[in-house]
């Protein structure tokens, strides 16, 4: 089986057979899109909520907003239909805790909120999610059935 790793600020698309995986997802967010009918799956691993807050925003996969747009574009190129797409979201944890409300350290939460907002704008339904907490996740998106396996250390394994 083909297994493709999707690193930080990266995204990838797969058709028919195989797995897209992100290992050790922390405060970044893993966005899995799936077209069941055409068996096309895409996984994005953006680090920051918005390309509009930042001057250097050439790397589209780095941001939630432009990352989702680019992912959809690539999925359509592989034969997916926009109206078939459903989403699963994982990650966005806060790995370190501090007393003060540090914006940078709450980035996980902001990434998840930005993801939901963008998907709502695009009319893509989120069918399941496993977000937040203070722990890392490894995720595996299987293109055969669109299942998303979430593995953690000490917080169990589940399929969402």
């Amino acid at each position: 089986m083909k297994i493709i790793k999707v690193g930080m600020a990266d995204l990838n698309v797969i058709k028919n057979l195989g797995i897209l995986t992100t290992l050790g997802l922390g405060s970044c967010v893993g966005i899995a899109l799936y077209d069941e009918h055409n068996r096309v799956a895409g996984l994005a691993h953006p680090m920051l909520p918005s390309s509009k807050e930042i001057r250097n925003n050439a790397n589209k996969a780095k941001f939630v907003d432009t990352g989702i747009e680019l992912l959809i574009e690539k999925m359509i190129q592989k034969g997916a239909f926009r109206q078939n797409l459903t989403a699963k979201v994982a990650g966005g944890s806060q790995m370190f805790s501090f007393d003060k409300n540090n914006n940078i350290l709450k980035i996980g939460e902001r990434n998840v909120l930005a993801t939901k907002k963008k998907l709502r704008e695009l009319n893509i339904q989120i069918v399941s999610e496993d977000t937040g907490g203070n722990y890392g996740r490894t995720i595996e998106l299987n293109v055969e059935d669109g299942s998303l396996l979430v593995k953690t250390i000490g917080h169990g394994i589940k399929v969402i």
Binding site: G26, M47, N56, M95, I107
Partner: peptide, 27 residues
């Protein structure tokens, strides 16, 4: 320096924190 904060978890998840801070200004 701030007070220290400790986490026990996957290396990738822990390193995502400093990486994200770089993300604001660099690739």
């Amino acid at each position: 320096i701030s007070v220290p904060s400790l986490a026990i978890d996957m290396a990738g998840a822990i390193l995502s924190v400093p990486a994200i801070q770089f993300g604001y200004i660099s690739d």
